[in-house]
């Protein structure tokens, strides 16, 4: 009996447990490891371990989602549609968290001493636009009823959405004046980050991508159950 033609539960459990131990270590290290205090940032520099991996994770999720949309168009297998959808959904949540944590961080650094929470900084504006593009993907899906037709139309749109992502998140903001690191006239991560912070930052990226994988697999599992039940109304 093969309960999951698409998911290996034992491997999932192993990765899940590893991710939880790994990320716990990242959080503890993120708080405890001493970092140099620099102007304006002070302790908020520790946000590097948590805010920035949100975007790396969303980027990875966009890649996974786009890959499965491509495979759907090649094979027509509906599990690809489920995977593309769930990767996009979990990835979009990481994007929302990245945007919100960015707003909080910027309030007390860029905008400290003002009433400003949001000033249409290009980086933040483009990231919001990106999330709206994915919002349209979910709306588009909900408007279509026939599973096969929905899968194909959504896959084509999703490939468009995935293609715009690197431009909106990385290419365009770097050409504009922004307070965000890595923009015009503003040094990027590589020039300013203390070496000890990299030892936590890189594992944090791996850990959060792992967390994405755990949540994504859990959702695929759920969606697969739902698909089996609805496909066969006798149950």
């Amino acid at each position: 009996m093969n309960k999951h033609p698409h998911i290996r539960i034992d491997r999932y459990a192993l990765v899940r447990n590893t991710v939880f131990v790994w990320l716990t270590a990242v959080v503890v290290a993120g708080f405890l490891v001493n970092i140099p205090r620099i102007n304006i940032l002070e302790h908020t520099a520790r946000n590097l371990y948590f805010h920035v991996p949100m975007w790396f994770t969303m980027m990875a999720a966009v890649g996974v989602s786009g890959y499965h949309s491509l495979r759907l168009l090649q094979t027509g297998s509906l599990i690809r549609d489920i995977r593309a959808m769930q990767a996009a959904r979990v990835g979009a949540w990481f994007g929302v968290l990245g945007l919100l944590t960015g707003i909080i961080w910027s309030k007390f650094t860029w905008y400290v001493g003002t009433d400003v929470w949001w000033n249409f900084d290009p980086r933040q504006t483009m990231a919001s636009l990106q999330l709206l593009i994915y919002g349209a993907y979910f709306v588009l899906r909900s408007a279509l009823d026939d599973p096969d037709r929905r899968a194909r139309i959504a896959a084509v749109y999703n490939l468009f959405a995935a293609t715009t992502t690197p431009f909106l998140l990385y290419v365009i903001p770097r050409q504009l004046q922004s307070l965000h690191p890595g923009a015009e006239g503003n040094p990027a991560f590589s020039d300013i980050t203390e070496p000890v912070m990299r030892l936590i930052f890189y594992p944090a990226i791996i850990g959060f991508i792992g967390l994405f994988w755990v949540l994504y697999t859990q959702r695929v599992r759920t969606a697969w159950i739902k698909y089996r039940v609805i496909r066969d109304p006798e149950l």
Binding site: H4, I9, V214, L215, R221, I225, V229, L235
Partner: peptide, 18 residues
Amino acid sequence: VYRTDRRLSQVERTLEDR
């Protein structure tokens, strides 16, 4: 997350049995 995984396993078992 662990609780949700256990629930999912239960639902899957029920589904298989049916």
